[in-house]
Simulated assay, not measured.
Amino acid sequence: MNDQIAQSLFRPTRSAGRMAVGTLLLAGLGYLLRAVWEIRLAAAGEPASGPPDQGEGVHRPLTALEDSYHFVATVTGVLTAVCAICFLAWLRRVRENAADLSGCPPKYSGLWVYLGWIVPVVNLWFPRGIVADAFRTTAPGRRLPASVSIWWALWLTSLVTGIGLIYSASTDEIIARAYSSIWPLLASDAATIGAAAAGALAVRAVTSAQLACLAGDEAATPPEWAGA
C-alpha cells in the first residue's frame, strides 16, 4: 500500500467515523429522553381541558410538562439533523475509499448516497447496500458485520411504525398520542434507539475494516465488530 495514499485517507476516514458514531449515540440519547418524557406525559394524564391541539386552529396553553416535551423534541430534532449530516459524510467517505482501495467502481452511483434515503421503494435497501458494498469491497471474502443488518432492520421498523425519524406529525399531536396510546410511540422510539446503537457499531466495523486495509493489517479489526 502506497504510504502517501494511506496518509491521505487514514485521518479523514477515522475522524468521519468518530463523528458518525458520536452523533448516532447522541441522537439515540435524544430519543431515549423523548421516550422518558412520553412516559411522564402518559403517567400525568391528559388535562381536563383536552389535548394541546383542539382543532380548527385552536391551541390551549401548554402545561409545564408539555412545554418541556417541546424542548426535548426540538433538541432531539437538532441532534438527528446533525447525525444525518455526519453519517452521510462518513458514508460518502467510505464509499470513495473503497473504490480507491479496490480500483473498482462502486456498485451504487454517488447520488444514491443521498437520494437512496428518500426515493420510494429503493430507500428500502439502497442505503444498506451502499454500506455493505463499501465493506465487501474493502474486505473481500469476509462476512458482513451483523451490526449492519441489525441497524437496517431496526431502521426499517422505525419507518414502518410511522413515528420514527421521519414522522411528520406536530409535537402537539405526539403529545396527544402519548395521552391516548403511548405504546406505539414507545415501540417506535425503541426501534430508533436500537437503530442508532447498532448503526454506531456498524460504522465502527466498516471504518475499522477500512483502516486495517489502509494499514495493511487485517488483524487490526476486532472480531466482535466483524460479525459471527
Rank of each mutant, 00 (worst) to 15 (best):
R34W: 05
A196R: 03
S49D: 15
Y179M: 05
G28C: 03
I182S: 09
T80P: 02
K107D: 11
Q54D: 04
A195H: 03
A146Y: 02
I5P: 00
S68F: 04
A212P: 01
T171A: 11
T157Y: 04
R34M: 14
A176D: 15
V160C: 08
G162H: 06
L214C: 07
G50V: 03
S49T: 15
P145L: 05
W90I: 13
V148C: 10
I5N: 03
F10I: 05
D3L: 13
T74E: 11
L88D: 02
D100A: 15
I193H: 02
L201Y: 10
I150Y: 08
R93A: 09
E46W: 00
G57K: 08
I85N: 00
S181I: 01
P106W: 07
P52S: 05
H70Q: 11
R142P: 00
L33D: 01
P222T: 11
V121N: 03
G164I: 11
A6T: 15
T137Q: 14
G110C: 01
L211M: 14
L25D: 09
G22L: 13
A178C: 11
R11P: 00
T76D: 06
G141F: 08
W152K: 06
V113W: 02
A200M: 09
S49R: 09
A20N: 09
E218L: 12
I85Q: 04
E96T: 13
P47K: 11
F87Y: 15
I39V: 15
V203E: 04
A48Y: 01
L201T: 03
N97S: 10
Y179L: 11
A43T: 11
A73P: 00
W151E: 14
V94Q: 10
A20H: 08
V148I: 15
V21T: 13
G162I: 05
G17A: 15
Y179Q: 06
S8V: 05
E66Q: 06
G77H: 10
G164C: 09
M1Q: 11
S168N: 10
E66Y: 05
A146L: 14
A27D: 13
W183M: 14
R60T: 12
Q54W: 02
V36M: 12
S8Q: 14
P222Q: 12
R92C: 05
T76W: 03
A209C: 10
A176K: 07
I175A: 07
M19N: 13
A16L: 14
Y69K: 01
L165I: 14
A191F: 12
I193F: 14
S68I: 02
L79I: 01
L33Y: 02
D133N: 12
T192E: 13
S149I: 12
D67K: 07
R142F: 08
S102H: 05
A195N: 05
D3Y: 03
P184V: 09
A200N: 06
Y179D: 03
G199P: 07
A20Q: 04
T137H: 04
E66V: 10
W125K: 07
C83Q: 15
T207N: 10
A190Y: 08
L214H: 06
S68K: 06
L9N: 01
G227E: 04
P140K: 08
R93L: 13
P222W: 08
L26I: 15
L79Q: 09
A64M: 04
A48W: 01
L211K: 04
F10E: 12
S149M: 03
I85W: 13
I175E: 05
T171S: 08
